[in-house]
Design a protein around this nucleic acid. Structure first.
Lengths: 209, 209
DNA sequence: AAAAAACTGTTGCAAAAGCAACATAAATGA
DNA sequence: TCATTTATGTTGCTTTTGCAACAGTTTTTT
């Protein structure tokens, strides 16, 4: 995170102080929520991992979002004019906090102190979500697979401060994240190795340039 | 916008009440700001249009963001670990409001009323930015050009409530927005016309299904 | 009003990417 | 522990895409 806001601490406080908030647990594979009703729902991952999955009219499945602890997602953050069916599915056993944006705003206008703090902290959560969305767009706008992979690896290298790092995704999930065919991606990674740009050992990558 | 927050009104108020804020005018083609220093800057478009342009190490230019009136952009919203040079360039004569996220937060803790309101409204601005970023990701994650175009046209149709609509972009800019080669996109649009999916008249499109 | 710049439309060709179909390895769970 | 599922790695083939190179329009600028 760029800011020095204590997200964890805020969520802890939020979790126990607010009656507009629900916390539920989900087993791996269970559907956390769908984006088809219009409930203005916002969700925060307290524990576990959640994938946001799109099924288009052909039945093709794409993972369009992947959320880990402290990430924020939900219908309220999503455009309403798309006609896909979106499902948020627990990728691991997870604990999710739910509230609605509406309830948040009405409360605030009644001058409740806690909600004032919440709103201001919410903007921090939103900001960190914007940054991660911009990161993804940065990668998705690269015109070829090699560009996407290289940019992603460079970002990992910069953020870990090492030329060698472990991928936080499986290769299957990475392909989804970059929105490319997994086989084509593997082929391209192999060619990066062959061309001497990187070294690969399982899910450990070393940049050689 | 999904929420009923009056963005325009808020920005008007903000613009004249706050000494931490700067407003500058730019002529078409001028550089509004760069994303290379780390100033935690946030910008709001009061008037005009701004493109966010990436020059990668090969000198290739990509428009990775396009901002119109009331849109919010700036370094503070962008990941720090990428190593591109980003330039925000006025696409038309523009009026831009600048402030830093830091100044905003410190002010708030000093209990300035205006800044309290600002912070809470800022989350609305952030939210609407998240929604538009998610929209773009929705399009970028489609695996081929046809899918991107069709989804985009469907969204336009839904949001205008008409089967016929005028593109808000030039075709050149649309190709940039979808991050595909312009010629390949034109070819694909032509094939959508030939296959009877759409009708095209200049920058007016009609969905036929 | 003429010149320059930007946008549209088109095509052939080469390169890249997706798809299908595997074999193998690793992880999960009954 | 054994079976089942999930992930990795690979390859041939086909389709899609990007690139280059145009000509013709429209818009902007001088």
């Amino acid at each position: 995170m760029d800011t020095n806001f204590d997200k964890k601490n805020f969520i802890e406080k939020f979790k126990y102080s607010c009656n507009k908030v629900q916390i539920k647990k989900f087993l791996k594979g269970e559907t956390v929520t769908t984006y088809i009703e219009k409930r203005n729902q916002i969700c925060i991952v307290l524990d576990g991992e959640v994938d946001l999955i799109r099924y288009d009219f052909n039945g093709n499945k794409t993972i369009i979002g992947h959320f880990i602890i402290d990430d924020i997602f939900g219908e309220a953050l999503y455009p309403t004019n798309t006609n896909n069916e979106l499902f948020a599915v627990a990728k691991k056993n997870s604990e999710i906090l739910f509230f609605t944006y509406d309830s948040l705003c009405t409360k605030c206008r009644r001058n409740c102190d806690f909600h004032k703090e919440l709103t201001s902290n919410l903007s921090e959560l939103f900001l960190s979500q914007i940054i991660s969305l911009n990161l993804r767009i940065e990668l998705l706008t690269k015109r070829n697979i090699r560009g996407k992979i290289q940019s992603y690896f460079e970002i990992l290298s910069k953020s870990t401060l090492h030329r060698t790092f472990t991928l936080p995704f499986s290769y299957t999930d990475l392909a989804d994240f970059l929105s490319v065919d997994r086989c084509a991606m593997m082929r391209e990674i192999k060619s990066l190795v062959d061309d001497g740009f990187i070294k690969k050992n399982g899910n450990k990558i070393t940049l050689l340039y």
